[in-house]
Each structure stands twice: as structure tokens, then as C-alpha cells.
């Protein structure tokens, strides 16, 4: 089977011309943000003519820490790059924007209104919903011919550590069903609602129908392997692998394309290594790595080294992200481990 070996790098993804959505996800603490930032940087460096956007859907944002730069709810260019922007979606401000846009004549200073927005802001899954609305906005912008709005060729999602990612992906189909039912009901009760509510209801229904069309479009795009892919990030330990396996099974059920797994924090401690602890841990890690090689034959299994320092700042990320494309060689590139610049 050596003539059809899947190469252990993300070159496929970086050079893939038609990809529009890239999700990076995995259980907590495995290096999702580092990986998603690295993927974005490599994409930006390899395709200087295209625009990229990295969105964090994690309520505990850390893109700002990763890049050593303050980001907000509006996309901001990364210092040092011309075609990569980052966005950290803040649910409370998105909520305010949302309610002010759709106030429907409600009194803004009404205390009841404030309570409603507080309650809405604490609904589990509200972060995913707002990230999703960003997605919808972006799709609308793409169809927009207005040149003042920046269009992004690919959007990379740095997802939240827990199962929220799956809930986020489930949103399109759930919303579709919800909106479908709503449309049905409104169609039947239409004349009745006209008598009661008047024009406001009509406006709401037409907006909902609009959203439904967008949601269906998003659903279609997320299930197209030419447009969307998911990169699983894990470490070489039992629980992380088990979670990755479950994540992959769930993603396959959603028909989302998964073909790459990034294994972080590998020690590559050879027999000549002085640290006995590193050697013993590396033994445990290689045991699982072998099992993964057998289990995920058809996947790009990218093995990333554990470096001596935190990977923060664009320069360090550039050094680290190289290994996503050219696999790390522990014998030749041992010096990299201690070569990270302090910021």
C-alpha cells in the first residue's frame, strides 16, 4: 500500500483552491488556537492574492494572546500580514447590535427590555448562534457586488473546546427545520395574523424566510467536501484520541469532510535524549502514534513537536506553522525546539 500513502501534512488543504470554510477543533488544551493560527498563516503566506479571516467561536477568546495583538468583533488585519484578519465574536455586543436592529419599535430604556437581553445572552449556544450569524452575513456579502465590503476567500474557525462545535454545526439543519415549520404555520395563519399584528408580522416572516434560504445554503456548503473541511487537533494520549474518534464519527454523521488530524505536543525524544522523563513519555506517545497510524490510514496525520516555549506572536507562529507543510524531522531540526523568540 506504499504507492498510495496519505502524506502527513496539511499541504492538501493549503493548496486547495476551492475551500471556503475550514474548521479547527478538538478537546481542550490540545493546541487548537495554535493550530488554527498556524493554518491561517500558512494559507496567507502561500496565497498572497487571497483574503483570509480567522474567527474565534470560543467564548474564552485567545486569538489576541496567540497573535500578541488585540482583536475585536470587527475583523482586524494581523500585523505583519496583508491578507489575514482575525475576529473575536463577543456575544453581548452582538446581542445589543441585534436587538437595536430589530427593535420593532420597542422602548430601548425599558428595564424589561434590558432583562430580556440579559436572559438571551446567557442561553447556552448563543455564542454559536452569533458566530453562525457572522457566517450568514459573510455569505450575504459574497453575493454583494459592493467593493467596499471586504470579501474573504476562506474563513477559518477556531472552535470552542467542548461539544459546542457540534451544536454549532447542527444549527443549520435545526434552524432549517424550525424555519420550515414556522413558514408552514405562518402560511396557514397568515390572514389571521394580518388582522392581529399588521405589517410587523409580515416583515418578520419575510425576514425569517430570507434567513431560511441562507441557512439552507450554508448547510449545503458545509456538507460539500470541496468547500468545507474539518481539521481535528489532538495530543497523543488515550482520552484525547478517544474524543477525537468520537468527534470524527459525529462529523461523518453530519456529512462534513474530515481528512486531517494534527497531533500536537509530541516529544520526539530519541534514545540519545538526556531527559529520562521525556524518553518515557515519548515511549507512551509513540505507542499511541503507532495505533493512530493503523487506525487513520486514510487521514493526513500531522505530527507537531512540543517546543520549548509558548508559541505566541506572528514570528513564532510562522516558525511553528512550517511543520504543518513540511513534516518535522526530529534529527535535523532539533534546534527549533529552543529557537522561539521571547516577546
Amino acid at each position: 500500500m506504499s504507492d498510495f500513502e496519505v502524506e502527513p501534512s496539511l499541504k492538501d488543504i493549503i493548496t486547495h483552491e476551492s475551500l471556503k470554510w475550514i474548521f479547527v477543533g478538538g478537546k481542550g488544551g490540545v493546541g487548537k488556537t495554535t493550530t488554527s493560527s498556524s493554518v491561517s498563516i500558512q494559507l496567507a503566506l502561500n496565497n498572497p492574492t487571497k483574503n483570509y479571516l480567522l474567527i474565534s467561536t470560543d467564548p474564552a477568546h485567545n486569538l489576541s494572546d496567540a497573535f500578541d495583538q488585540k482583536f475585536g468583533k470587527d475583523a482586524r488585519l494581523v500585523e505583519g500580514l496583508t491578507n489575514l484578519s482575525c475576529m473575536e465574536i463577543d456575544p453581548s455586543s452582538s446581542l445589543e447590535e441585534f436587538t437595536s436592529n430589530n427593535s420593532m419599535g420597542m422602548d430601548q430604556s425599558d428595564p424589561l427590555n434590558g432583562m430580556m437581553s440579559e436572559i438571551t445572552g446567557s442561553i447556552p449556544g448563543i455564542d454559536e448562534a452569533f458566530s453562525f450569524m457572522e457566517v450568514l452575513k459573510h455569505i450575504k456579502n459574497q453575493k454583494n457586488d459592493d467593493s467596499s465590503v471586504i470579501k474573504y476567500d476562506t474563513i477559518i474557525f477556531d472552535t470552542a473546546p467542548t461539544g459546542h462545535t457540534l451544536r454549532f454545526l447542527q444549527l443549520p439543519s435545526t434552524l432549517e427545520k424550525l424555519l420550515g415549520k414556522f413558514n408552514e404555520i405562518s402560511g396557514r395563519l397568515g390572514p389571521l395574523m394580518n388582522m392581529m399584528g399588521g405589517d410587523q408580522k409580515n416583515e418578520m416572516f419575510s425576514k425569517l424566510a430570507d434567513i431560511k434560504a441562507q441557512v439552507t445554503e450554508v448547510n449545503k456548503q458545509f456538507q460539500d467536501p470541496e468547500l468545507t473541511t474539518f481539521i481535528c487537533v489532538c495530543i497523543s494520549e488515550f482520552l484525547s484520541l478517544y474524543e477525537t474518534e468520537r468527534l470524527i464519527q459525529d462529523l461523518t454523521k453530519y456529512n462534513m469532510d474530515v481528512n486531517s488530524i494534527v497531533v500536537n505536543q509530541l516529544l520526539f525524544a530519541g534514545d540519545d535524549d538526556e531527559c529520562k522523563r521525556c524518553q518515557s513519555r515519548w515511549k507512551m506517545q509513540s505507542k499511541y502514534l503507532e495505533q493512530m497510524d493503523e487506525l487513520y490510514e486514510d487521514y493526513h496525520l500531522v505530527k507537531m513537536p512540543l517546543l520549548g516555549n509558548e508559541i505566541r506572536g506572528v514570528d513564532n507562529l510562522k516558525i511553528f506553522s512550517r511543520f504543518l507543510i513540511d513534516p518535522y524531522d526530529p534529527k535535523k531540526q532539533k534546534d527549533v525546539v529552543f529557537s522561539l523568540t521571547d516577546h
Binding site: F238, L241, E245, Q249, K287, Y288, Q291, M292, E294, L295
Partner: peptide, 14 residues
Amino acid sequence: SAQDNYAKWTKLNR
């Protein structure tokens, strides 16, 4: 043992 035969165990799981 899941830890020692992870690949086989996962395949059985699937």
C-alpha cells in the same frame, strides 16, 4: 485493554 490495543479497540467500537 483500551490503552494497549487502542486501534483494535476503536475498530471494534466502530
